[in-house]
């Protein structure tokens, strides 16, 4: 089962390495990871997507909490939550496909953020499923480069970190 964990961690050197080291050392797996400081600059918010049965997820959460630098861990996928990811996709855009790409952008509410004679660079935002859909559709047209942020997530309403 896929789980999305929201982790508040002290914004200090080595903290991220402790977390990733914990995952590799104990054989847990990280599907995606994104980190940035919160409003409180001494804390970082880390969103981590992982997989495992309930025992493994329980161990992961407990092990994370055991780290001295970890302030709080919430499994946001336990309840209702929103998740977003952003990708920049540089796609081949020749005369015959330029219009089609723009139509697709329209449908998926993507933005073209850079244009060259032979390419468009598209900004896509959404849940992971949308990333998949967009990349699948653009693939036949020729994706030259792709950069993704990894998922960030937040529990809906009251259950905030």
């Amino acid at each position: 089962m896929k789980h999305t964990l929201s982790v508040l961690v002290e914004n200090c050197p080595g903290a991220l390495s402790r977390i990733t080291g914990l995952f590799s050392g104990r054989g847990f797996n990280i599907e995606s990871l994104s980190v940035a400081p919160t409003l409180d600059p001494t804390l970082s918010h880390l969103t981590l997507v992982t997989r495992g049965d309930e025992f493994i997820i329980e161990q992961i959460i407990k092990q994370l909490n055991r780290l001295v630098d970890v302030y709080k861990v919430v499994d946001v996928s336990e309840g209702e939550f929103v998740e977003r990811e952003m990708a920049l996709i540089k796609v081949r855009a020749e005369d015959e496909t330029r219009a089609e790409i723009l139509r697709m952008c329209d449908i998926f509410r993507c933005k073209v953020v850079d244009v060259s004679p032979k390419t468009y660079t598209i900004e896509v935002t959404g849940p992971e499923s949308k990333m998949k859909a967009v990349t699948e559709l653009l693939k036949p047209l020729g994706i030259k480069e792709i950069a993704r942020t990894g998922t960030i997530a937040m529990a809906r309403e009251k259950k905030s970190v």
Partner: peptide, 12 residues
């Protein structure tokens, strides 16, 4: 870095 996985915590 070396002792991160075998200490309770460490500092530089």
């Amino acid at each position: 870095g070396i002792t991160r996985p075998c200490t309770k915590h460490n500092y530089l």
